[in-house]
């Protein structure tokens, strides 16, 4: 029922979103940790910056990316000169755009799970000879894993739907940057594209629903509390 070209669009979308979330996950966790635990001047500003893509018109985010990562932009120019590497009009650029758009959602979900870590358990780990790093790897991180997974799924779903920043930053190139929403938009412009729009829209609904259900399930699962918690 789906045409080969449509399967390609879905595969490209999954690749863009997968790479976007996979690479931004550690950064999102670091930011979430800083916002949950850090005490430093400018925390409010960092919080606002992280959340900016959530409230900014996506086309503005895309334009800012264009300025920063364009061939003459501060980051894009440097990438081009030192690594011979450009994100412009490439699927990697689409991944960057959707990662930035998904970041606030991921940071929020992770921050909640980091704030929910029982710090008494971290204290217990320290008295048992674990330094701050071992305490993090063996207690804090495992206890926040459900939140991390939920954030990843949520971010993945958000990233699959990314439209404005992507089309502004890397345009709508078939086979390179034409992800699901962009393909639906393109098909809408074509006479007789209705059937394709319907099929791709149904795929979008199915993927988004699956992601939401998965994320909710991960959040509820959590870990069992200790038997005498809260006495």
């Amino acid at each position: 029922m789906l045409q080969p070209a449509e399967w390609e669009i879905i595969a490209l979308s999954l690749k863009v979103s997968g790479v976007a979330i996979g690479t931004s996950l550690p950064l999102a966790y670091g930011l979430a940790w800083l916002l949950a635990r850090g005490r430093f001047p400018g925390k409010l500003l960092l919080d606002a910056l992280v959340h900016l893509p959530l409230v900014l018109p996506p086309v503005v985010t895309g334009w800012l990316l264009l300025i920063a990562f364009g061939a003459t932009g501060p980051v894009g120019g440097w990438l081009e000169r030192s690594l011979g590497f450009s994100l412009m009009f490439r699927w990697t650029g689409a991944a960057l755009a959707s990662a930035i758009m998904a970041l606030p959602l991921m940071v929020r979900a992770m921050r909640l799970s980091i704030e929910a870590i029982d710090r008494r358990l971290e204290q217990a780990a320290r008295t048992l000879g674990a330094g701050p790093w071992r305490c993090f790897w063996t207690v804090s991180l495992p206890l926040s894993v459900p939140g991390v997974l939920a954030a990843a799924v949520l971010g993945f779903a958000r990233s699959l739907g990314e439209f404005g920043a992507t089309i502004t930053f890397v345009s709508n190139i078939p086979g390179e940057t034409r992800t699901l929403p962009l393909a639906i938009y393109a098909a809408l412009q074509l006479p007789g594209g209705d059937a394709m729009v319907t099929r791709l829209a149904l795929v979008s609904v199915a993927l988004s629903l699956a992601a939401l259900v998965a994320s909710e399930w991960l959040v509820r699962r959590g870990w069992g509390g200790s038997p005498r918690d809260g006495t």
Binding site: D118, R120, L121, Q123, A124, A125, T138, V139, P142, L143, W223, G224, G225, S226, P227, R228, D229, G230, T231
Partner: peptide, 9 residues
């Protein structure tokens, strides 16, 4: 500890 603090995971 009074609240034991066994690692739940």
């Amino acid at each position: 500890f009074q609240d034991l603090r066994l690692f739940p995971h």
